[in-house]
Write a protein that binds this DNA or RNA. Structure first.
Lengths: 249, 249
DNA sequence: TGCAAAATAGAACGACCGTTCTTTTTTGAT
DNA sequence: ATCAAAAAAGAACGGTCGTTCTATTTTGCA
């Protein structure tokens, strides 16, 4: 029933291949369903996501939607995967074009902020999901924690590269820096989305510059190193495998 | 039906008064119900809080529980009020015994951390509630936002007092400092409760000392001012009335 | 002790949920 | 055009939910 392994990247339109149609109708609508489900889950949370609501949005029947996943949990996991892919593309990959060091770290934070700001009206399932599944077990929680951990590892790696490039103090703790940055994003989300405080974006940005200033080895660290295009996809892919329970220290 | 105005502080045991029994049976069990409901809401959230679950925990019937509140919303609001009172007592009032300035601010943060750490197993409804009600309207959201805003105002006031005492730089932005502190608590909650990272407590504590160090006017600001016991209850009470939509700046 | 009022229980309601089963429609290679 | 397979719809299930209405029990003053 579950097509985990053979699930192709269903985001782009079908590409005819070797005389056999590759993307048949079912996978097209599955993409539509996941897209609608992600939109719903962003607003009302993964737990509030109901098959009936997805059916109504997509104009399908409940059983028609259900048949694509076999269970609500599988639908939730599909939504998490889709969000992971988008986050990866818009926050991580986009920043990997910048040279190692503070420039890339700054780009990651900026992209993250853009993503979070865009989510002020829609919500972030990494944040709402953490609250909903924090004392639960099962595959949904695992998928969520795995995605979050992957991103946190990538962020910490960016900090470590900035240290290695000599732009951040070597005595600084990459875990600690990543923790404080994460706090800024969470506070931004809380203030902007729940309390409707428009000043939150500026607060988060200033907080980030404070963190940089504390650990900077130079007053204003200009990007001086050579830009490297060294296989960013391979790095993220390896990070995706590195997802450990708690390899914090 | 709703007894907003005349609801007495039902926390202590009944005190006989003027020949008439004051706290009759109903209010005793109402206290028991709210206590159980707060415990449940802390674990599964305000939205997950069901009357049936409360009835099962308290050993009552669904309708028996329901009759005390008249609606689920009223039960949720009662839970928020109860949490507000406890938070006020254990975080705010406890810190008001310290002298103005960094000492009191440090005490507030410490108490907040103790509260949050104790909630690692139970959850914080100021955090889960913000996620659950961030795009909803109605009295539950209003009660939640009101409580949170009250606390944020109190925290910011503590920062401003530390500025006035000359222990924090006058150029520092109290709003900004409160924002960054809030972020540390949110990151602590996220890391400790969702990702089960035991190092999170230490991270939050170090982050706070970083914030203090950045704005400190002295290397290690010792509490030098005279301790004041000036009516802390009046201050919080006035803050409770100050709850504005967004008086951020 | 008596007795009205308060408190609690019990049963039932309509609504929505995830899921299953059956039937109909649509697809797409021949 | 044919026809089997895939996709989607439809109906129904057992369950939980908040809520309502009606009985029963308990309370607490006289």
């Amino acid at each position: 029933m579950t097509d985990h392994k053979k699930t192709p990247k269903v985001e782009s339109l079908p590409v005819p291949e070797a005389g056999r149609r590759v993307l048949i109708k079912g996978q097209q609508t599955k993409t539509v369903i996941i897209d609608a489900a992600l939109g719903l889950a962003s607003q009302i949370g993964l737990e509030g996501l109901s098959i009936g609501a997805v059916a109504e949005v997509t104009g399908m029947s409940k059983s028609g939607v259900f048949a694509h996943f076999g269970s609500r949990e599988e639908l939730q996991i599909s939504v998490i995967r889709e969000y992971h892919d988008r986050f990866e593309a818009e926050v991580f990959y986009a920043a990997m074009q910048k040279p190692r060091g503070v420039a890339r770290l700054q780009a990651m934070f900026d992209n993250w902020m853009v993503q979070t700001s865009a989510e002020i009206d829609s919500g972030c399932i990494y944040i709402s999901g953490a609250v909903e599944f924090d004392d639960r077990t099962g595959p949904v929680r695992d998928a969520l924690a795995s995605s979050v951990t992957t991103w946190q590892t990538a962020l910490r790696r960016a900090v470590e590269l900035a240290q290695a490039e000599g732009q951040l103090s070597l005595e600084s703790d990459a875990h600690q820096i990543a923790f404080e940055i994460h706090g800024l994003i969470l506070a931004l989300h809380y203030e902007a989305r729940f309390l409707r405080n428009p000043a939150a974006t500026d607060r988060a940005r200033r907080g980030f510059s404070h963190i940089l200033a504390r650990y900077a080895t130079e007053p204003t660290p200009a990007p001086v190193k050579t830009p490297d295009g060294a296989a960013p996809s391979a790095q993220w892919a390896s990070l995706a495998k590195t997802q450990r329970k708690n390899s914090d220290h």
